[in-house]
Amino acid sequence: MNNLFAASATAGAVLSLLAYFLGMYLKRKTGWGFMNPLLIAIVLVIAVLLCARIDYDTYNASANYISWFLTPATVSLAVPLYQQLDRLKQNIKAILVSILAGCIASMGSVFALSLLFGFTHEQYVTFLPKSITTAIGMGVAQELGGITAITVAVIIVTGIFGNIIGEALCKALKITDPIATGLALGTSAHAIGTARAMELGETQGAMSSLAIVTSGIITVIFANFFAMLI
């Protein structure tokens, strides 16, 4: 199998895509919150590589073509942000202040827990961008010298966790305003939380998607400062 993968220019990419499609199918069939297509795809690809004894490098030689699109896709996030421009202007103060508070709370709590656990700088910066969207978070971890693969996994699981607990937690804390609910979901659980926000309502969804990009940019700015602390 390793030889087949090494000889093919597309095997890794095809395996990744097939695993994702299977994930989407399972999500549609079951409708369960933790049946996240991305999570399923990651587990499946890892299982296939381990069972068939295929090296990560061999897989990544072709799967890497998929990753190549990540930078232009991240740049494209400017489009939904621009489409939300009117809503952004209307509630600019509440939006910016609460997302800023959320980002500081995120990095502050990662800092406090890392200190408690006695983490190294490499481990600490791996977790620093855990609440923001994978595309930006991965870049931040890479630039600061973290372990990107762990960052990506932690970001995805954070999103799934936020997606599952979001509605109940907001209800328990009496976060009832649709704008506040959307901002809370987007800032804590990025795109995967936004999927839940969109199910709750149009305002929640719009606010949540706005929070993805805004919290990502705020985190990029403050992460450099926080990174110096450990």
Binding site: K93, S98, G102, F161, L169, I179
Partner: peptide, 28 residues
């Protein structure tokens, strides 16, 4: 650091959601 990872994941996600949502509620 698997156990620490799970703790960070759960604790910070709850904190971020609470802080962001509560701040927005007060301001709105």
């Amino acid at each position: 650091i698997l156990l620490q990872t799970v703790v960070i994941l759960v604790v910070t996600t709850v904190i971020v959601m609470a802080v962001t949502g509560k701040t927005a509620m007060v301001l709105i």
